[in-house]
């Protein structure tokens, strides 16, 4: 089945089975490898993308459900002011160990900052608690989200 998807500001046409999760469409049909497979059932957050601005688990969304929604992935989050600030903060704080979960962390954080420009630490934990990091970089993730949020205030 052919689908025309609105991803990162462009229309991409793919030919995949109806039940293919958006995750695998992005990764294997569109070669956007930044969105990561971690659990396949919405438990780890590694595959978080934005659909019409909302953070969703791409592993749980069949391609047939996407329609004309706008999909934004880690590859393009840097084109938004919030995404760019988060990426900069992530590097400044040197958040990463293995880095595998971090695209999902950044996408979840970007959705948080879009609806709450000055989150408290509790807001950050509430938003990001579903994103697992096996290396244990949580303290630096919190620090980086705070730094990115503070960057806006200064701007």
């Amino acid at each position: 089945m052919r689908y025309s998807l609105h991803v990162n500001g462009h229309i991409h046409t793919v030919d995949v089975d109806d039940d293919t999760p958006l995750l695998w469409v992005l990764r294997d049909a569109m070669n956007l490898k930044g969105t990561k497979y971690g659990c396949g059932v919405g438990l780890c957050g590694s595959c978080t993308v934005h659909i019409d601005g909302e953070p969703v688990h791409a592993c749980r969304r069949p391609v047939s459900s996407i329609g004309i929604s706008k999909v934004l992935t880690i590859e393009a989050i840097g084109s938004t002011p919030i995404g760019a600030r988060l990426q900069e903060a992530w590097l400044k704080v040197d958040v990463m160990q293995c880095g595998y979960c971090q695209p999902g962390q950044i996408m979840t954080a970007a959705a948080l900052l879009a609806r709450n420009a000055a989150p408290s630490e509790e807001d950050i934990v509430e938003a990001l608690d579903g994103n697992l990091c096996r290396c244990g970089t949580y303290l630096r993730i919190i620090e980086a989200v705070k730094l990115a949020a503070a960057g806006r205030k200064g701007a």
Binding site: N31, Q87, L91, D94, G99, P103
Partner: peptide, 29 residues
Amino acid sequence: HSTPGIDGPMLVKGEPLFGIDVTVPGMFY
């Protein structure tokens, strides 16, 4: 002296660095 991870700038953009990101022409899954 604290030196940030060398792959950081690529990791935050989701560039294909991991084993699971490898693509080889003509490959099957």
